[in-house]
Design a protein around this nucleic acid. Structure first.
Lengths: 206, 206
DNA sequence: TATGCTTCAACAAACGTTCGTTGCCGGTTG
DNA sequence: CAACCGGCAACGAACGTTTGTTGAAGCATA
C-alpha cells in the first residue's frame, strides 16, 4: 500500500543497500520487540547493516519514523477491514470477515505490534492527533459492522462502544501471545474468536 | 498489603518527607502514563518533591522499582481474583465474580497500569521469570474458574487457553480507555462484560 | 563533473547512579 | 536536664555512558 523508494534506482553509493523500506521494517520489528524508547538509532542501523548517521538519508527523525509506522499500521488495518467486508451482505458473514481481518492483520507480519495505544504516547501531542483520528475511524468501521447486523434484526448490541472495545481487546491480546510455531494456526484462532464474539450479540440462535 | 516504613519513625533527616511508598506510588503513576523508559529518575523525584539521588535511599535501582511494582500489581490482582471467587459455588456466579474482580482491579487505582506484557520486557531476562510465573498462575486461576463450570455441565469451553486470553484481553482493553469521569461507571461496565463473556461459554441458555 | 549515499567523528543533552557532605532525629551517657 | 553519638535521609554536584542528531570527507554511479 505504501511504496517508498520503488522503481529501478538501485545500488547507489558505496556501501550496502539500505532502502528506506528496509529501515522501516527493521524499526518496526525492534519497536515491537523492545519498545520505542528502548530501541536506539544505532540498534536500527545495526539491524540493516549500516551506521546510525546513514539512517537520516531515509528519514527525518526517529519520531517521524514511529509516526509513519503507526499511521501505516493502523491505516493498513483499516483498509484490510474494509476489503474483507466489502460486498458481504449477510450480517453474520460480515462480522466473521471483520473478526478475521482484525486478527489476521495482527498475526500476519506486525507480530507483537507497535500499534494502538502502546507507543502512541511516545509521539508529541500534535503528531498524535493524526494517528488518533485514524484509530477512531477504525473503531467506527467496526461499529458500522455491528450497526448493520442490528438494522437487519440479526444482532442485539446493548452497548455499541463496549462491544467494539471487546473486539479490539481480543485482537490486541492475540497479537501478544501468538507465535507462528504455536499450537494453533491463524485459521483456527480466527474461527474460534469469530464464534466466541458472535455469541454475545446473536440472541439465542443455536 | 505491603507496609513499608510504618511505625512511629517519622521525619528523620533534613528536608521533606519522602516515604518509600510515596516513591512507588509516583513511579507507578508515571510508568503507567508515559512508560518505563520514558520516565526518568528525575521525573519520579520531581513528582515526590525531592532529587534523583535521594531516591536511592529508598530503593536499589530503577529496575528494582519496576520489578516490585509489577510483582505487586499482578499478585494483588491474583489475590483479588481469589478473594472474589472464594466460597462461591455456582459456576455462573463464580464466573461473574471473576470478571468483576478482573475489571475492577484494573479500574480501581492502577489506571492504565504497567501491566502484563507492556513493560515486562524492560526487565532483565532473569528478573522477568518471577513475574512471568505469577502471570501464569493468574491465567491458571482463571482457567480453573472455567473448569469448574465445565465440570458442573454449565459451561461449554471449546478452547481453554483462547477463552482465558479473551477474558484477559477484555480486561486489559478496559484498563486503557476507562476514565472515572466517563459515560459509564465501573458497575455498569463490569455487568456488561459479565454478560458478554458469559454468552460464548453458556450454550443456549436464554 | 555532479549527485547521492556512505562513513566516521563529534556534539550537546539526558540518562541511571554514586558520592561527599550536611542536617535532623532518637537513644545513651553524664 | 544537658551533652554527645550513630544513623538515616536529603542535597547537589559529578560520574561515565548512551542518547538523537549533525556535518565534513570520501566513494561510486551516471
Amino acid at each position: 500500500m505504501v511504496a517508498v523508494n520503488s522503481g529501478p534506482h538501485r545500488r547507489r553509493g558505496r556501501g550496502r543497500v539500505t532502502s528506506a523500506e528496509a529501515v522501516r521494517a527493521a524499526a518496526l520489528r525492534l519497536f515491537a520487540e523492545r519498545g520505542y524508547h528502548a530501541t536506539s538509532m544505532r540498534d536500527i542501523a545495526a539491524a540493516v547493516g549500516t551506521h546510525a548517521g546513514s539512517l537520516y538519508n531515509h528519514m527525518e527523525s526517529k519520531e517521524d519514523l514511529l509516526l509513519g509506522l503507526l499511521r501505516e499500521s493502523i491505516s493498513d488495518r483499516l483498509a484490510a477491514l474494509r476489503d474483507a467486508t466489502k460486498g458481504v451482505d449477510d450480517p453474520v458473514q460480515r462480522f466473521r470477515a471483520a473478526v478475521d481481518a482484525i486478527l489476521r492483520h495482527r498475526l500476519a507480519e506486525h507480530r507483537e505490534i507497535v500499534v494502538g495505544q502502546s507507543e502512541l504516547r511516545a509521539l508529541q501531542p500534535g503528531r498524535r492527533d493524526a494517528v488518533v483520528a485514524l484509530r477512531d475511524e477504525y473503531e467506527e468501521a467496526i461499529g458500522r459492522i455491528l450497526d448493520h447486523g442490528v438494522e437487519r434484526g440479526v444482532f442485539r448490541v446493548s452497548d455499541r462502544k463496549l462491544t467494539i472495545y471487546a473486539l479490539i481487546g481480543v485482537g490486541q491480546q492475540v497479537g501478544r501471545w501468538y507465535r507462528p510455531d504455536g499450537r494453533l494456526g491463524i485459521e483456527q484462532i480466527s474461527r474460534f474468536y469469530q464464534d466466541f464474539l458472535l455469541a454475545p450479540i446473536t440472541p439465542a440462535v443455536s
